[in-house]
């Protein structure tokens, strides 16, 4: 039986000769909450960008298992939208919503890859299209309720308060029905109360059977939420293990505090 959902081996990326990721090996288990931590500039976001197809890795392999015993799919070389369709969705560190669209529409965009309506469907608005459109609206609204944004449905996303924008990003990613959810600093810039709420939300989502991989600087969040932690520094993995192991790992302490 295969319990891995994502297997990364030998992943490297270079920008103009500088190695941003250096021979990274990683594997994420089904239904776990895992975290990638590391000092600023360690290559965490670059890692996410590789996983989601925004950057092209220069070497290595990314294998995705869309379910237990499922055939492995290589995500390397796939376009971002294909990766999302396979079941990997993400949020962004510096929020990238569609500010001119309403909150609900933002989530509806997430449903794009799970719906089919074509131009002709849009023009003639036949029964199938109408049903699909209603399904998109209903599902999106349910997701908004779930992340606690039901009150903002018709508000422009650009006008939402900061914390709500972060939640909306998560809602949008959830709408794509991912198996693996990548969260890039979900608690960045939040006050302690908001961080607690976000932690609760992440826990709930994970309880539904989603695998979550997150990047975070808030150690309290990481240590209490995640089963496994990967530490990278200068594009290399320097440690991995449970929160307890990471806390006492001398390499990690060195990387964070400086030698």
């Amino acid at each position: 039986m295969n319990t891995t959902i994502l297997k990364i081996s030998g992943l490297s990326v270079s920008f103009g000769g500088i190695l941003a990721l250096d021979n990274l090996d990683l594997d994420i288990k089904q239904k776990e909450i895992a975290a990638v931590i590391g000092p600023n500039g360690a290559g965490k976001t670059t890692f996410f960008n590789c996983l989601t197809g925004l950057y092209a890795p220069s070497a290595g392999e990314i294998l995705f298992y869309p379910g237990r015993d499922a055939e492995a799919v290589s995500l390397k070389g796939m376009k971002p939208h294909q990766i999302t369709e396979k079941g990997v969705a993400r949020t962004f560190q510096n929020i990238r919503l569609f500010p001119g669209m309403t909150t609900l529409e933002n989530v509806m965009i997430g449903r794009h890859c799970r719906s089919r309506a074509s131009i002709l469907g849009a023009l003639f608005r036949n029964a199938a299209t109408r049903r699909e459109e209603q399904e998109i609206i209903d599902t999106s609204y349910t997701i908004l309720e779930r992340v606690g944004l039901a009150g903002y449905v018709n508000e422009l996303a650009g006008n939402l308060p900061y914390g709500a924008q972060r939640r909306l990003e998560m809602a949008r990613a959830l709408a794509a029905e991912p198996l693996l959810l990548l969260l890039d600093e979900p608690a960045a810039g939040m006050n302690p109360q908001e961080t607690l709420n976000i932690m609760e939300l992440i826990g709930e989502i994970a309880a539904d059977g989603l695998t979550i991989l997150l990047i975070e600087h808030d150690m309290k969040l990481v240590m209490s939420l995640c089963q496994r932690i990967f530490v990278i520094d200068y594009g290399r993995k320097i440690a991995q293990g449970s929160p307890g192991e990471i806390r006492s790992n001398p390499d990690v302490i060195k990387a964070y505090l400086g030698a």
């Binding site: 939208h81 001119g100 669209m101």
Partner: peptide
């Protein structure tokens, strides 16, 4: 429509648009 929303999303943020599964 679904297509029209995709266009507007493309205008608003091309990268987020791709990452949300729009071709």
């Amino acid at each position: 429509s679904r297509l029209g929303r995709a266009w507007i999303a493309l205008r608003e943020d091309e990268i987020a648009c791709e990452a949300m599964g729009i071709d």
